[in-house]
């Protein structure tokens, strides 16, 4: 596969994990210097657990996680940054918006906690980019799947993340909405200087977006 997007100078993701989640153990090692790296594999293989480990929500048994040259976790060196210091822009598959806060307050949440110097996009730019102006006064439980995911991406971007983690961003969306979001992710990839890691099971999606594809396989099989 060939791509016109220039690779980053420093490696975007350097991952070496030995994980144990609910009696399921797996190991994963890869390095990537693509701007957008895709993680593919059958369900249950540990793709989401890997994202959780990178975000700091799950602790690996051992290993090392570095993103854009910054070490977030290194069991040998005793490094284990808490999630709030890692500053992942994590877009969960279920959006995970705060149900008791309006859309606008969900956007405020990370924006208020972000250091001023780290901001790279304004509130109005994000709202325009994701076309969520008309949703700002809504309560999250009333949003459709596609709307919730757009709000989740907006919330992540406004928290001034150092990298983006996207968990199945196009899952359970109809074709036209998936296409809109796909175009949007391409724009984010091309216009922002953010390493992105995307979990997917759609080869079409991956071929179009990713500069590097990492395949995860269940242990014991190839």
């Amino acid at each position: 596969m060939s791509y016109e997007i220039a690779p980053l100078e420093t490696a975007s993701f350097e991952i070496d994990l030995d994980m144990s989640v609910d009696d399921h153990t797996f190991a994963l090692e890869f390095g990537s210097n693509a701007k957008l790296t895709a993680l593919v594999g059958p369900s249950g293989v540990g793709k989401t657990s890997t994202l959780n480990a990178i975000a700091g929500l799950l602790r690996p048994r051992s290993g090392r996680i570095a993103v854009a040259g910054r070490v977030l976790f290194d069991s040998a060196a005793g490094v284990d940054q808490p999630p709030e210091q890692r500053r992942a822009g994590y877009v969960f598959q279920d959006a995970r918006l705060f149900p008791h806060k309006r859309v606008a307050a969900n956007l405020d949440y990370g924006e208020k906690l972000a250091p001023d110097s780290a901001r790279f996009i304004t509130r109005s730019e994000v709202v325009e980019l994701l076309e969520i102006e008309h949703l700002l006064d809504r309560q999250p439980p009333t949003l459709s799947g596609g709307e919730a995911r757009r709000v989740a991406i907006a919330r992540a971007l406004l928290s001034a993340p150092r990298f983006l983690l996207l968990d199945e961003p196009l899952a359970s969306l109809d074709e036209s909405r998936a296409e809109t979001l796909l175009t949007l992710i391409e724009r984010l990839r091309d216009e922002l200087d953010l390493p992105m890691l995307l979990v997917s099971h759609s080869t079409a999606e991956v071929e179009r977006l990713a500069g590097r594809v990492v395949a995860m396989a269940p242990p014991g099989r190839s």
Binding site: N52, A55, L57, R96, Y109, L113
Partner: peptide, 25 residues
């Protein structure tokens, strides 16, 4: 609890996440 995790990735300390997520909910 995953909402608390989401708050943490957005920059909230454990105490801030407690005050803004667990307590009101």
């Amino acid at each position: 609890r995953r909402l608390v995790g989401a708050a943490r990735t957005l920059g909230a300390s454990p105490f801030h996440a407690f005050l803004t997520i667990t307590l009101p909910l």
